[in-house]
Amino acid sequence: MNVAALEKMLAKGNDSAMLRFGLGKAYLDDKNLDLAREHLQCCVDIDPDYSAAWNLLGKAHLQLGDKASAETVWQTGLEVATRKADKQTEKEITVFLKKLKK
């Protein structure tokens, strides 16, 4: 689904963690980092257990040059992913954290 369609859904009041995740990912893919961060932050505010959103939110912070925030977000995401047994996200975040510390 394209960004315009997702934004239209949001404008109609169909707000949800999944919609915000979709918008955040779409904006991240388009390198619209401020909007990506905004929507991904809304996603985890709506659903703090959305481990994949924590992962992408960390990427958005890193691409915006904010390594400290990226690390903080990824630490939270790692805790969520571990608790939920989301092995794929756990693995990805662990790799990102290791790279960040180099």
Rank of each mutant, 00 (worst) to 15 (best):
N32Q: 10
G24Y: 00
N14G: 08
V80T: 09
A70F: 03
K8Q: 14
A81G: 05
F96A: 15
N55L: 12
D45Y: 08
A17P: 02
K67T: 11
K98Q: 13
K101H: 15
E71L: 09
K101V: 12
D29C: 03
L97R: 02
A52H: 08
L33R: 06
C42M: 12
Q88I: 08
R20I: 01
L6M: 08
V80I: 15
N55I: 01
K102E: 15
T76Y: 11
D34T: 07
A85D: 14
A26W: 02
A53I: 03
A60R: 00
Q41V: 01
D66R: 08
K101Q: 15
K99I: 10
R20M: 08
S16M: 04
Y27A: 00
D30S: 10
A81S: 13
L10T: 04
Q63I: 02
A53F: 02
K25S: 08
Q41Y: 04
A17E: 07
G77A: 13
Q63V: 02
I93M: 09
G13A: 08
L10V: 05
I93L: 07
K12L: 07
L64Q: 14
D49Q: 15
V95W: 06
A60D: 02
E90Q: 14
V80A: 09
E92Q: 13
A85Q: 15
A52I: 06
A52G: 08
L97N: 00
T89F: 06
G24A: 00
P48D: 12
D49N: 15
D15H: 05
